[in-house]
């Protein structure tokens, strides 16, 4: 294992190329604002789906309240930027921090629950957050909270890259393996000295933190945020991305987020049709390919490096 090898260098080069192509075409005006917006949203949803995958795909905790953490990050960052006249970066960090704290507060009691119960509890938590925001006039209430647009493609893309790398590094470490062991067999994990509660809360908190970060990006890009954009429908959307890509596959989540966001953008004028297609897609996927596009495998460039370096 090495930090610098051909594989990592190639990935970096590819990332720079993608970034540069989009940036140049956007500046030149060949890329329409609509496509640019879609690409920025793809970045936001990649962060959301990869972070949910850490909780649901890797640690095996079925959570459907991700939109709740996203909204906490969105409103907290907007609060810093608009009400406190803070910088964008301080807003984003604050949003992530508050979402992480919320993750701990919500995670500690609810992660004792299993399976379906956890899903419903997290769904409930997400809805409570939404209703609280709805009733908080200081942050705009139901009409929404206006935030100046300060996030651009550069911010969105590189924050996405850093987020994915951090989550990937976490998963591919001993601590990440501890999380996976919880998914695989909680009783055995505990018997092997894994403090399962600690790792569940850790995964949940990291996941919530990045959902908050994504929320911050979203808030500072969309001009306005409203509580109703963060309902459990959004949580389901994110879950659908993760499942489509494959639970336990980061590259899968990236593909899932990309496909779903682009599909949604194309069907933006047919919202009902969009939902029907997503619904049918989910059902067919579960029946015929329940492991998603990637299963729990990763798309790897390992053939580029010798076996020893892996």
């Amino acid at each position: 294992m090495k930090l610098f090898n051909l594989k990592n260098a190639l990935i970096l080069a590819a990332l720079i190329a993608v970034y540069a192509i989009v940036q140049m075409t956007a500046v030149a005006g060949t890329l329409s604002p609509f496509y640019l917006m879609t690409l920025v949203l793809v970045c936001v949803y990649i962060i959301l789906s990869v972070s949910l995958n850490l909780i649901t795909g890797y640690t095996g905790q079925l959570a459907i309240g991700h939109a709740g953490f996203m909204s906490i990050g969105a409103y907290a960052s907007a609060f810093i930027v608009v009400k406190m006249q803070g910088s964008l970066i301080s807003g984003l960090l604050f949003g992530a921090l508050i979402a992480a704290i919320a993750g701990i507060i919500i995670g500690v009691p609810t992660l004792r629950l299993r399976g379906d119960y956890l899903a419903i509890a997290t769904l409930g938590m997400g809805e409570i957050v939404r209703i609280i925001l709805l009733n908080t006039d200081y942050l705009g209430g139901a009409t929404g909270f206006s935030v100046p647009k300060s996030v651009d493609w550069t911010w969105a893309f590189w924050i996405m890259v850093v987020s994915v790398v951090i989550i990937r590094n976490f998963i591919n470490s001993s601590h990440g393996r501890a999380c996976i062991s919880v998914r695989e067999n909680e009783i055995a994990a505990e018997a092997m000295g894994i403090n399962t509660t600690k790792y569940k809360v850790m995964a949940f908190t990291i996941g919530a933190m990045f959902a908050g970060l994504a929320g911050g990006l979203y808030a500072n890009y969309m001009y306005i945020i409203q509580p109703m954009s963060f309902s459990f429908l959004k949580s389901f959307d994110i879950l659908a991305m993760v499942v489509l890509g494959g639970l336990g596959s980061i590259t899968g989540s990236i593909i899932g987020a990309g496909l779903m966001t682009i599909l949604s953008a194309y069907l933006a004028n047919f919202p009902e049709m969009r939902m029907v297609i997503i619904a049918v897609l989910l059902i067919l996927l579960m029946i015929f390919r329940p492991n998603g596009i990637m299963g729990n495998k990763e798309f790897k460039l390992n053939f580029l490096i010798s076996k020893k370096e892996r």
């Binding site: 389901f236 879950l239 659908a240 499942v243 939902m275 029907v276 997503i278 619904a279 049918v280 897609l281 989910l282 059902i283 579960m286 029946i287």
Partner: peptide
């Protein structure tokens, strides 16, 4: 997830 999909449908 199938149940959620059916609900949307």
């Amino acid at each position: 997830i199938t149940a959620i999909g059916m609900s949307f449908f």
